[in-house]
């Protein structure tokens, strides 16, 4: 399941729900929270509704096939968040732990680098968009 939400993410509830569909074997999960690094007061994520879900869904589908996962989920925040807020819950399930762990590692890496989000930070009362290096989403890369 892919869900991009503007509401707070309850990671414990998401994990319980995922366990209900994961099947037997191994479940790996990741929770990412907003860092206060550098005095960040607010982190705001912009996304392109529909497109962002589609791009993340393509990544998940590929990993499900590559690692023979029985289930995978990504719950990602958009909108304004404060340090400590959950920004990402991701989970994978497979018959054996190595596939679940490796797939989750790849999934989080791909989300961190290629997911279609745009980040704006508020520091010292000033907002600025983060200027990432020029990267291409998965479907435009060779």
């Amino acid at each position: 399941m892919i869900r991009i939400t503007g509401k707070p993410v309850d990671a414990a509830a998401e994990l319980r729900e995922f366990l209900g569909v994961a099947g037997e074997g191994a479940v790996a999960s990741f929770i990412g929270t907003v860092r206060a690094m550098g005095g960040v007061e607010t982190l705001t994520l912009d996304h392109y509704a529909g497109f962002t879900e589609k791009q993340i869904g393509a990544v998940v589908d590929r990993l499900v096939a590559d690692f023979e996962l029985t289930a995978a989920t990504v719950i990602h925040r958009h909108g304004a968040m404060r340090p400590g807020d959950t920004i990402l819950f991701a989970a994978t399930a497979a018959p054996h732990r190595r596939a679940a762990l490796d797939a989750l590692d790849r999934l989080v890496d791909e989300l961190k680098t290629h997911a279609p989000f745009w980040k704006k930070e508020l520091r010292n009362g000033t907002e600025h968009w983060l200027e990432p290096p020029v990267i291409a989403p998965a479907e435009t890369r060779a």
């Binding site: 961190k112 680098t113 997911a115 279609p116 290096p133 020029v134």
Partner: peptide, 10 residues
């Protein structure tokens, strides 16, 4: 039609 500046990732 959408114009997408470089993406930050999640």
């Amino acid at each position: 039609i959408a114009f997408l500046p470089p993406m930050s990732g999640g």
